[in-house]
Design a protein around this nucleic acid. Structure first.
Lengths: 153, 153
DNA sequence: ATTCATGCAAATCGTTTGCACCCAC
DNA sequence: GTGGGTGCAAACGATTTGCATGAAT
């Protein structure tokens, strides 16, 4: 649970896959550790990392994000806003959280999911489809924006 | 349920919103009626419509897709393959289907959803979030691709 | 030393937009 | 007739790629 746990995981997984441990890759992962509960886009990461290391290239950020996702250190998510976003992947394989996306302010809330595991099994059987992952998004209005809407009629 | 039902709906909704009924808009909708159970991208529609009307512009297809979605005749979906896809929207407001996406061949199967309505209510209450829509995707392997994988080990 | 990673700029791809002409109303 | 719609080409924004240099092993 210490700050360096994920970083050690990075070190180890890079070695396993014969990739090199570069400062850029560490910095990209660190950006996520420094901004928990956020869903950073490539540009977000670029701007965070550039504060510390102005010479880093945006392409390197993209390449690092892809690599970290392949190694399951990051999870790529798509909120339909035209750019990919990423978050630190949960270690436990199947049990992850999903998102409540506000259609007004764009805020993304997380919610923990337990209820879909059973559903998976029945769908899997019924459709002869081996399910390895699922993704659930709820669209609506957060309490603030809902209040706003109530006022405006 | 006849072929022209949706087309009449188009005519009516265009009028309601003071938009004009053009052959291009009709042809775009017709492309979906002629290809049921498919999830057409803008390029797909463009190539279908161009057979009949070679002078149509891709931009017009995009503009029609946007308009038809706004009027809830089409539903925009995102399978994360880098392009937006569309399908004819279900008339009943809340009850729609979801998708099983094969990670190998990319095939998309549909499945009917009944079970999430109850879930919505409890999430809505717990998170103070007014839910207006949801989207569920299951990722995995269709029976053919699963068989292939079993052979290859 | 070797191999892989980086930074930069150019290329790519889906989608959007500006504009002059055209057509549904 | 007029205002919105179209086709075309150019612009756009996110992401990818080619290539020469640089750094981790």
């Amino acid at each position: 649970m210490s700050v360096s746990t994920k970083m050690k995981e990075l070190r180890q997984k890079l070695r396993e896959n014969q990739y090199k441990l570069t400062p850029q890759r560490q910095m990209v992962l660190q950006a996520f550790l420094d901004h928990p509960n956020r869903h950073l886009s490539a540009e977000d990461v670029y701007s965070i990392v550039r504060d510390q290391s102005p010479d880093i290239g945006l392409a390197t950020v993209y390449r690092s994000l892809e690599l970290l996702s392949e190694m399951n250190l990051l999870q790529k998510i798509d909120f339909g806003d035209g750019r990919s976003r990423y978050e630190v992947a949960e270690s436990g394989a199947t049990h992850h959280h999903h998102h409540l996306i506000c259609l007004d302010c764009g805020q993304v809330k997380e919610y923990d999911d337990d209820l879909l595991e059973g559903l998976e099994a029945s769908i899997s059987r019924k459709h002869r489809f081996t399910i390895v992952d699922h993704e659930v998004k709820f669209y609506g209005y957060c309490s603030q924006c809902q209040a706003k809407r109530d006022h405006e009629g």
